[in-house]
């Protein structure tokens, strides 16, 4: 079949979400740091919701061990996660603008990559890297809101994953329990619940400026 035109896709989203909501979401530029379990799923949710501009960063390639929870397919094993995500996001919205950075993020490159975003999602898995990213953003890019994830391993306890505003520009989603302490490790349902909290927080911030 012929793919829908950009206008048809936009009309569909606008009808579904209302023009007011669609325009607020469409005009945002959202950054995602880390395209693993959280980041790959957040990106897909935001693309489906109509975000038209994403900045994604990850230095890793898709591995067989990622398939249990990350938004990739077996045939993408070995591909850079940024390239693999772009393929899938463009299958949902061919007109989305994606700026890819296949680099390891550190305090020297984070401000340049994410400084122009409206909201940035922290989606790493190592706690010291989460802290490094969040501190760098809050120190170097004041005014950009950060939505971070902390604690989403195991199964059950769905309602223990929550969203809290912690600092003026920092929102934290998760249950605060380390993956080493949760039976089952990282599994798709709870990682997606947390990713859902994060993507939903992004949309609420775009619409209301708060959660």
């Amino acid at each position: 079949m012929t793919l829908p035109s950009k206008e048809e896709l936009e009309n569909s989203l606008s009808t579904r979400h209302s023009p007011k909501v669609h325009n607020a979401i469409k005009n945002a530029k959202i950054g995602i740091a880390g395209m693993g379990g959280l980041g790959s799923n957040i990106a897909m949710m935001l693309a489906r919701a109509g975000v038209s501009s994403l900045v994604i960063a990850d230095h890793d390639v898709v591995d067989i061990s990622n398939i249990n929870r990350q938004n990739y397919y077996l045939e993408q094993i070995g591909k850079a996660k940024t390239d693999a995500s772009e393929e899938l996001l463009k299958a949902v919205n061919p007109y989305i603008a994606i700026v890819k950075h296949c680099v390891k993020l550190d305090p020297s490159n984070i401000p340049g990559i994410f400084g122009g975003c409206d909201i940035v999602c922290e989606a790493f898995d190592v706690p010291s890297e989460k802290a490094m990213f969040i501190n760098t953003m809050l120190e170097e890019c004041p005014g950009i809101k950060i939505v971070a994830g902390s604690g989403m391993a195991g199964f059950g306890r769905s309602n223990e994953i929550r969203t809290e505003k912690l600092f003026a520009d920092l929102y934290l989603c998760g249950d605060g329990i380390d993956m080493e302490e949760a039976e089952g490790g990282l599994m798709s349902p709870r990682v997606n619940i947390c990713a859902g909290h994060m993507a939903n927080t992004v949309i609420a911030l775009l619409m209301k400026g708060d959660v």
Partner: peptide
């Protein structure tokens, strides 16, 4: 007191009884 403290200042900034501090800890998984 509502402002982010740069990591380089953790060992330098002295706290007083009028201060309000928020510490957020991060755990693994993502």
């Amino acid at each position: 007191n509502g402002r982010i403290v740069p990591r380089s200042e953790y060992g330098v900034v002295l706290l007083s009884n009028s201060d309000s501090v928020e510490i957020v800890g991060f755990v693994g998984g993502g």
